[in-house]
Write a protein that binds this DNA or RNA. Structure first.
Length: 172
DNA sequence: CCGCGGTGCTAGTTACATCA
DNA sequence: ATGATGTAACTAGCACCGCG
């Protein structure tokens, strides 16, 4: 196929009807007018098609085909833009996911450390209570509460602690 | 209500020129 | 010379509408 059928069509028409085509509309002007019309409305009703065709000196069928192809190009471009937007969103979401996973790992490490500390404190408390009192049936009542507080761990009741800075309750 | 023809649409394809 | 790209034109299939 010829890539410039509009131009060829006009050459043919100017040969057939030299009077009517004494002033040939440049191809760029034709495209400009078509683009202008496409910009105002993508659909082409029959009346507008015929009017455009006569303004441009083209077959109405050519105008219809031009609009069909132009719509296809417009749709492709829109899809590409949508894809690009979604890809950017996807990439930033993946990045945020990685960041959050790293943070979870860090927090788990902190939690593990805190649990170790608590375990150590409990063992110390046990040793202290058993040495202070001959009765092993005694509970945590024997432990001095401020002792735990200095490590940022506050006793809530006998077996529940609130860890400062971690916003988390530990049940033992 | 139904079938039919006309029209316009989309999606996919073809043919060809142009360009890197 | 060649592969990628852009574009006019075509085709098939579908939907809608008016008419008899």
């Amino acid at each position: 196929m010829n890539p410039h059928p509009i131009e060829d069509h006009m050459v043919l028409m100017s040969q057939l009807y030299p009077a009517a085509y004494s002033q040939i509309i440049p191809q760029q002007e034709q495209v400009n007018l078509l683009e202008l019309n496409f910009g105002s409305e993508h659909k082409l009703e029959s009346e507008r098609k015929d009017r455009l065709a006569s303004e441009l000196g083209l077959d109405p069928r050519q105008v219809a085909v031009w609009f069909q192809n132009r719509r296809a190009r417009w749709k492709n471009k829109k899809l590409e833009e949508e894809y690009s937007t979604l890809k950017k969103l996807h990439d930033s979401t993946i990045l945020e996911k990685c960041r959050l996973e790293t943070e979870v790992l860090k927090l788990k490490e902190q939690l593990s450390e805190a649990e170790k500390e608590i375990q150590g404190l409990l063992e110390r408390a046990d040793r202290a209570s058993s040495s202070n009192s001959p009765s092993s049936s005694q509970s945590m009542e024997a432990v001095d509460p401020p002792f735990l507080g200095e490590f940022g761990v506050e006793p809530y009741d006998d077996h529940v602690f609130y860890i400062n800075g971690m916003d988390e309750w530990i049940y033992i």
